[in-house]
Design a protein around this nucleic acid. Structure first.
Lengths: 339, 339
DNA sequence: TTTATTTACGATATCGTTTTCGTTACATTT
DNA sequence: AAATGTAACGAAAACGATATCGTAAATAAA
């Protein structure tokens, strides 16, 4: 039953609890001899400090939370992985919460966190988040939040994103340059800033090349896979079928792939596809998928680094800052004009 | 600065702290009137209990840890997702740790957890784990551990796995039935029970069909992608090249896909491939990949459920139990004999 | 009326740390 | 010799909640 605490240590050394505590924290008040003895005894007795006692005393938990819309998503997992790496380096612990794109769940989780359980939060907002009260309250209570990817412009803090507008522009231009004339945009949520920016890039590229926007080509998808399938199928079987598709998120590109298989639409001959994606098997798909890939791991690292920087400073108010880490276009067969 | 605690509530209500505490916990000692008042006031003042004070007092943290070898792995993510669902239902929180297949890191993380920070642990052991002292100590200290997938037979507790032996047997037989004569097995780690069982299934299938094992066909891979590439490339370019491959994990199948592309080996005509995998794009690969898929989400749910069951009982010693959730074979083109 | 019993609440110890503030004993300065 | 300084330690008060007592008043039983 080696549940040894400071008191036990003190007793077995015949010194006071405070001396033991200070010795272990390497205080200048304690002589080197005593420190050696204490450390040796602690080692021997297998002392392991109770974290919660310290948290209570110091109002610091060495723990952060990561809130993401969904776990089963390559982008978010890579971002978490990056954040986790930095957390381990800083001896921080990570609590994970999936909001499942449910604003009530997001709000409820944040309420639970609004009590000192975590020192800070990394989050990507739920896609239908349109009220920010529950987020602002955390910050008012001194719990800093750093946003990544699905950010919240309305809140003053650090935000890590990729160059969504430029990437959307680039993706669309790539489709144009590889021969597409009628390009559709698959949107995942009208409430998301990233989606909006990618769409703006799409529109700007069309504009630059003097292409009239056809509204039927902008498909508003959602988290409901079934209605997505219906909408995209309708798009692909309409007489005004596009010859190029720009998917704002990976999931929609994969749905399109499935539908093309079903509808015998050839990629890239009949339809070219480009998508934001962190799929590691993009080059093994049939055909391989041209992607805009976000440096998700780096984004996670950066977000965590910024948070820890301010936590170390004991500053809970993080000034507004927009950090952009560029995505990379990887051209593959799904937009190959020579196939 | 709404950092209101029980004392503040008590003061503003002119009653004692203990009464407030009991009222909020719906104690029978408190009258309904008082309860109403307290609850209303708590609501009004935005009271949010400090979790760590309670944890300290009760020696319970409503938190569990999940330790996995790596985050960027479809199987583990789905398992985490399942566990997270159950955790949210039970109002438990989840700390995530990646061991990166590093036994020292695993050991160090477990040491950090050996102090009441978590009530219990869900874990998949690091692939080179061969000593179990660091794990046994946790259990001795009353922190229950449930294993999933990469389990530790030597420790008495609940273990959730899939039917690895039968699945290995089935995979190998499927290759035989689709025409493969020389079947290679790609192993990920000789220290892993799951690998060992899958391999036994492979050997048993060969035996059943009176096929002599050729030792050069059992490739011992690792976490080092480079040496894996070398070994598999050597296998694929040898004169005794196999015409079927059974990959024990997804990663090795993907490496093989890449190498086949590079070496112009046609799948499935020249080489058939089957693999354990939770890839969601298995059917979109070129060619689509025949998989043995574990119900990872369910495995995660099951593991968490068992842990919570014992935590609710305040029983920290979980009796030994082997729970098997069967995998499913999905036949696709990578083993299609008619292509 | 006296003695139990119940109801509703308060005082206080406790969980295990950290930290402030004393308090020695001894060395150093005037 | 008196005053000051310093090094090394201990006592005790936090941190915020919970649970064990105790106790007053009100009710019931004798």
């Amino acid at each position: 039953m080696p549940k040894v605490n400071l008191k036990d240590l003190a007793k077995s050394l015949n010194i006071s609890v405070s001396t033991v505590s200070k010795a272990l924290r390497d205080s200048y008040e304690i002589s080197n001899e005593t420190k050696k003895k204490v450390i040796a005894k602690a080692q021997q007795m297998g002392y392991n400090p109770n974290p919660y006692a310290g948290f209570l005393r110091n109002n610091k938990s060495k723990t952060i939370a990561i809130l993401i819309p969904e776990l089963t998503n390559n982008y978010f997992i890579q971002a978490i992985s990056g954040a986790e790496t930095i957390a381990q380096e800083n001896n921080y612990h990570i609590l994970i919460y999936a909001t499942n794109n449910n604003i009530e769940k997001e709000s409820s989780i944040l309420k639970h966190l609004n009590n000192g359980r975590v020192d800070g939060i990394l989050m990507s907002v739920s896609s239908n988040t349109s009220q920010y009260n529950h987020i602002e309250e955390l910050i008012r209570n001194g719990i800093p939040i750093v946003f990544f990817d699905r950010i919240c412009h309305e809140i003053e803090t650090a935000k890590i994103t990729t160059n969504d507008f430029a990437s959307g522009f680039m993706a669309t231009e790539h489709l144009l340059q590889t021969g597409s004339k009628k390009i559709a945009y698959l949107s995942i949520s009208e409430h998301l800033s990233i989606d909006h920016k990618r769409k703006q890039g799409y529109l700007e590229a069309l504009n630059k090349h003097d292409i009239q926007l056809e509204k039927e080509l902008m498909i508003q998808c959602s988290d409901d896979e079934k209605t997505n399938i219906d909408k995209i199928k309708k798009l692909l079987t309409s007489k005004k079928r596009p010859d190029g598709i720009f998917a704002s998120v990976e999931k929609l590109a994969l749905t399109t792939y499935h539908l093309c298989k079903e509808l015998k639409i050839r990629i890239p001959q009949d339809l070219k596809i480009i998508s934001f994606s962190n799929l590691r098997t993009a080059d093994l798909l049939n055909p391989s998928l041209t992607t805009i890939t976000q440096p998700a791991y780096e984004i996670g690292k950066e977000a965590a680094s910024i948070l820890f920087k301010y936590l170390a400073k004991r500053k809970s108010l993080i000034p507004n800052e927009n950090i952009v880490i560029n995505s990379k276009l990887t051209i593959r067969d799904s937009t190959n004009p020579d196939l």
